[in-house]
Design a protein around this nucleic acid. Sequence first.
DNA 1: CTTTTTGGCCCAGTTGACTAGTCCAATTAC
DNA 2: GTAATTGGACTAGTCAACTGGGCCAAAAAG
Lengths: 317, 317
Amino acid sequence: MELDRKSGVPYYIQLKEQIRRRITQGIWPAGTKLPPERELAKSIAVSRNTVSQAYKELEGEGVLSSARGKGTFVEDTALIMQQESRKEKVLRIVDLAMEEAVGLGFSIDDFVSFVHVRGMEKKDQLSRMKVAYLVSNPEQLADVNWNLGPGVNLFPLLLSELQESPRAQECISGMDMAITGVSRLAEVKILLGKQHIPILGISLQPRLDTIVRIAKLSIGREFALVCESNQYAEKIKLALRQAGLYPAFRTLIQPNETNLREVLPQCGAVILAPRLRFRVEKVLPENMECIEFHFEPDAGSLNLLRGALLELKGEKF
Amino acid sequence: MELDRKSGVPYYIQLKEQIRRRITQGIWPAGTKLPPERELAKSIAVSRNTVSQAYKELEGEGVLSSARGKGTFVEDTALIMQQESRKEKVLRIVDLAMEEAVGLGFSIDDFVSFVHVRGMEKKDQLSRMKVAYLVSNPEQLADVNWNLGPGVNLFPLLLSELQESPRAQECISGMDMAITGVSRLAEVKILLGKQHIPILGISLQPRLDTIVRIAKLSIGREFALVCESNQYAEKIKLALRQAGLYPAFRTLIQPNETNLREVLPQCGAVILAPRLRFRVEKVLPENMECIEFHFEPDAGSLNLLRGALLELKGEKF
DNA sequence: CTTTTTGGCCCAGTTGACTAGTCCAATTAC
DNA sequence: GTAATTGGACTAGTCAACTGGGCCAAAAAG
């Protein structure tokens, strides 16, 4: 593996590309152990931190996984293949645009600068968009840490509140878009019929890491399932069944110290609705696994949403 | 005029855009005096240097002109209109590419980063291209300060040398491309017939500022025209005639101190071939205007050349 | 002429990206 | 158990871009 020292491309970016290439070319299949950071750093004569940054970003993209003391491993080749093919598509268009720009007499620097400025403008515009997220359970109000792109403002609202309070209705009219789970879509469309804002249905799925952790623990153990509402508990159970998991449950709605102290010691692990951790923490027995159950939109829904936002922006400005 | 302080776009870029807009919208027609740097800086609450940078870059692009003590003025609205329409074309493609990328699940930051890296790669590749520039007059060897984009390496070569020396022939074979004036194109194609490198004809025109300076001085004055070869002197005269200028000349080939001392005092101004200034300087009478005559490829030729280089690069890598 | 206006120029401070060095903690090997 | 390996986290230095202030010189105004 070698770096181009004169190209001006940051070393860690070059490294990422080379690692990507080795994976896509099948030289490093899934599960391969990558060279340790120190070793690779020494072999290409850069700081370990440079290697570390490359590894870490690829880890963040789901391509690699690192564990202290063990090493860094190729995680998911299918994912990176897919990413690469998408990236290739984008790069083809970028090349096209670049040649067009050069043909029109701009330099490559000009072009990059155009894109840079244009990108900042778009981000700026996006960050001014306000999106209402209509949910039916109070637990969902807190579970909105999705990556919509930098600074799209997501305002969670309870459907029941919306039905009762005219204040909430007013609040909606200031938004640029409303989203909700597909199962509630029809209902929401009727409710917001008079307001002329676009409504988008998104489908939620449990976060993969959540499912994996539960799967690892679900052999011969009983779980405590702690929620604020029965509906949410049912939602979680349904999601687990759909993932092929049928663990034994003790369901605890509206937890307080008394019933927590009673139930928890009888269980092998705890599954929590989001933001309930602090209520359970003091009562939690030593060494007991405690899993917050998060939902997130699937990739398709996210793309749909992102695209819709960009289009909206186009109309707005 | 107002700036967006939160957008992250550098102030001087925002300023440039706003000034551009005022010009394209006809609010500031050609000849308009812009607010002095201090005044504008105060009114939008930034440092004068920020305004200065915006003005200066626009001056570099030929849109504005500044003069100490006088002010900054709108130079050429036609130019900027043309620039803007070209830029719009590019931006349309950029937007398209951006939406494609976002639709494929990338963030805008990802996209900008792709373009950034891709741009650096392309520049890097371009900077490794070697282009031979075949000229017929020794004066042209020195007149190659065109902006081909950062770091394209241009190697001027005399045609007569190429015909005689096999060393020069070898040199050519290491190049990626050869260019020459359109009038010599056929000749060069035969000469390099065996070498399999692309040959491009470009058309040269005198630099606009050179012509303008001569036009200003050409009323009732006789010029001294100092060159190294008769051909080049004729080239210059022809170019001037084509620009509608018919000044009186005293032509001086292969200047030395003696004939310079004899001829110069009888003239109102001097026109020099490139790089002859140092030979004339000591003999030059006080206050006599001295103009270096430069040729450059016209915009169309430059674009053709740039495009050809980008294409070549595509094949090479 | 002197004073005012105006751009040219240089230097300082801030910020962020990049690279590099060091110590710490988890894991493995013995 | 101990020692070696390995990634995590933190700090420091470098560099370029951006912004800001001060001084100078050319032009204009009086």
